[in-house]
């Protein structure tokens, strides 16, 4: 049985010009100790689906699902008090901008110890000892001194380490990392990703990595879920996905990787993710797809079987003999 199981998750935002579907019928499973990457462009609903899981969306969001189960608990029918016991404890999340995600008015030590006191009820000395231990674990030098530093006194990379230390403080079973490296420079990016993978190996927690960077996926993920315009369009193990993508969108994303490019100019995917007002009637990717035909423009494709990575496409790539026969 998987650690996290999401079935048919949809999130709609009520705006002044009507409802906007940010997440559309997404299924997701994460096993214990697994690294799952959710990939997609900006606006593809990757963050929103995870924020919905955490219960962090604003009140304008309307979340519906057939099932959201985490660690055997039904998160759909849980009350706020029950959710607070899980969130930040067994289920933790780190965010994109480490500089703004930490409270400027409190020392980083205070912010870490707060979680320790709230969820684990540790006393003062135990909190301090554990905080130092966590700082060492995430590779912050001179932890004793850094505990009394304020976020603005540290670099972005250090702050992200603090965020990670804070999120793993209560030994979560699942950590969601929402673009944890986007705001950091490249050398630090690699360090943070290594750290996350290392922590996974040490603690055996599941890890969901939200990213738009295929390079990050290639380095760390074991399984990849590709989202487009709120829908999951394909899911495969990382190795298979890089080898044989089934969805034209995935293929186009991979072609856009610099290291895969053979031309003098990098290939790009023309156009943008459809918004609230230009949502196509057929396949959501059809306006940008090179292979789209009349069927794609009129009929939305349903997810294919597991063997094709549940791809949402009328004409999956690398389908082999199964389609031909």
């Amino acid at each position: 049985m998987s650690l996290l199981r999401i079935r048919n998750l949809s999130v709609a935002f009520s705006t002044s010009s009507g409802a906007f579907r940010a997440v559309d019928a997404v299924d997701l499973d994460v096993d214990e100790g697994e690294i799952l990457a959710i990939v997609g462009e900006s606006g593809s609903g990757k963050s929103v689906s995870m924020l919905a899981l955490m219960g962090l969306l604003p009140w304008t969001a309307n979340v519906t699902a057939d099932e959201i189960t985490f660690d055997g608990k039904d998160l759909l029918r849980i009350d706020t008090a029950g959710r607070r016991k899980i969130v930040g404890n067994d289920l933790a999340m780190i965010f994109q901008e480490p500089m703004s995600a930490l409270n400027p008015c409190f020392t980083v030590g205070w912010q870490i110890k707060e979680a320790l006191r709230y969820h684990l009820g540790l006393d003062r000395t135990a909190r301090h000892r554990r905080a130092i231990e966590l700082f060492e674990q995430v590779g912050i030098p001179d932890p004793e001194k850094r505990l009394s530093a304020f976020p603005h006194q540290m670099s972005g990379g250090m702050n992200q380490r603090v965020m990670i230390a804070m999120s793993i403080a209560c030994k979560p079973k699942l950590l969601i990392a929402d673009e944890p490296t986007t705001a950091l420079d490249v050398t630090i990016q690699a360090q943070i990703l290594d750290l996350l993978a290392e922590l996974r190996n040490e603690t055996g927690m599941g890890l969901v990595l939200i990213t738009h960077d295929m390079g990050v996926v290639a380095e760390t993920a074991e399984r990849v879920s590709v989202q487009y315009a709120g829908q999951k369009i394909e899911e495969q193990t990382a190795a298979k996905l890089f080898d044989k993508p089934h969805h034209p969108y995935t293929a186009a994303l991979l072609d856009a990787l610099p290291e895969r490019s053979t031309e003098r100019l990098l290939p790009t995917i023309p156009g943008v993710v459809p918004g609230q007002f230009d949502r196509p009637t057929g396949c959501l990717f059809s306006p940008r797809c090179k292979l789209a035909d009349a069927l794609c423009k009129t009929t939305p494709p349903m997810p294919a079987g597991k063997e094709l990575g549940e791809v949402r496409c009328h004409y999956p790539l690398h389908a082999g003999e199964r389609i031909a026969s």
Partner: peptide
């Protein structure tokens, strides 16, 4: 963002509003 972080820690809304937000 740091208010979202505080909520992600599972704190009560009283603590989030009265301490994390009010201080700022």
């Amino acid at each position: 963002d740091y208010i979202r972080t505080a909520r992600a820690k599972g704190l009560t809304s009283g603590r989030i509003n009265g301490i994390h937000a009010l201080r700022n």
